[in-house]
């Protein structure tokens, strides 16, 4: 997989303000969003409910219109042109499709809208049904599908034209762990095929596992954006020792040592800073443990998310006061 230096999706100062109620009260759903998504990358778009994720996706797809700001997809601002949309596959949150059609009929219909016909269309329908594991249910009416099946058929319709860009809004929400793992595997496979994936999700662990870059949105503002290496801070250092026994561990705890983990005769102690590493090593040696290695531990995406959102909420509270 190679990531291009030319953004395939770019927004500049993208802003969406809704007017609600009789008085036309303004609700700022998205404020000055500058975003660049590069060809071949997986971008995880994160944020709590109501932060503006779906608004961004609707703007990118031309379903709603910006109050101001610009959107470029594949180098053009005419994002509604069929030439651009031929290269985009979209999976909406909740998967809404005509219930009166069978699984394969849905795919035929959407495939036709992409200009696919005849044998090419049939081959593509067979391929995507197989990819999402829905071949067995292809002739069943959609109203008889479970939530997971609807999500899979939704992913299949997004992939029907073999698009360059996939925009996925909460692709694994509401799925059981096995279905989630399967969807995640499909996404990883698409990443390996060089597709550009824009994934809006609440599932932080999943995003962390497959994304190259992430952006965190709060109150319509993109708070942070970058690669995981750039964003995830070194949280602490883990010092690994061998020859641990219950007695030795008890002494360490009594002396103020912080146990991170314990596996058989190995014990992992947490050092809060570089300077603290020496104290931890000294503590381990003092009870007869043998030093194995020292590993820096990066914070998880979940920890980053909580850190960013907590700070944004505090900022909002200060502003309101």
């Amino acid at each position: 997989m190679s990531v291009s230096q030319e953004p395939i999706i770019k927004t500049t100062k993208l802003t969406k303000i809704y007017e609600t109620g009789f008085r036309g009260e303004e609700v700022k759903a998205l404020i000055d969003l500058d975003l660049e998504i590069y060809s071949g990358e997986i971008f995880g778009y994160l944020g709590p409910n109501g932060s503006g994720k779906t608004t961004t996706i609707k703007l990118l797809l031309g379903l709603i219109f910006p109050t101001y700001g610009e959107i470029f997809v594949l180098g053009t601002s005419d994002i509604n042109s069929p030439a651009v949309k031929k290269n985009i596959g979209y999976l909406p949150e909740g998967a809404f499709y005509p219930d009166f059609l069978r699984g394969e009929e849905i795919l035929h219909f959407y495939g036709q809208l992409y200009g696919l016909t005849g044998r090419e269309l049939r081959k593509r329908v067979d391929y995507v049904l197989d990819l999402v594991g829905m071949t067995h249910a292809r002739r069943r009416m959609l109203k008889g599908y479970s939530k997971g099946m609807r999500q899979r058929i939704g992913l299949a319709q997004a992939l029907i034209s073999d698009p360059k860009i996939l925009i996925l809004d909460e692709p694994t929400t509401g799925l059981d762990p096995i279905a989630r793992k399967e969807i995640r595997d499909i996404l990883a496979r698409l990443r390996d095929e060089g597709k550009t994936l824009f994934i809006s999700s609440h599932e932080l662990l999943e995003v962390e596992m497959i994304s190259n870059r992430v952006g965190i949105l709060f109150d319509g503002v993109l708070r942070v954006s970058g690669t995981l290496d750039e964003l995830l801070e070194i949280k602490d250092r883990i010092v690994e020792f061998a020859n641990a026994t219950e007695d030795k561990i008890k002494i360490i705890i009594d002396k103020g040592g912080e146990i991170f983990d314990q596996i058989d005769s190995k014990v992992f102690l947490r050092a809060k800073s570089d300077d603290d590493i020496y104290n931890v090593i000294e503590l381990g040696r003092s009870v007869g443990l043998s030093l194995v290695k020292i590993t820096p531990r990066r914070e998880s995406l979940e920890e980053l998310f909580v850190r960013v959102i907590t700070s944004a909420e505090a900022e909002r509270r200060t502003k309101n006061e």
């Binding site: 031929k86 809208l113 319709q157 925009i167």
Partner: peptide, 9 residues
Amino acid sequence: YTVLSKPVR
């Protein structure tokens, strides 16, 4: 959503 996101004006 799914129809208008396809190459259809």
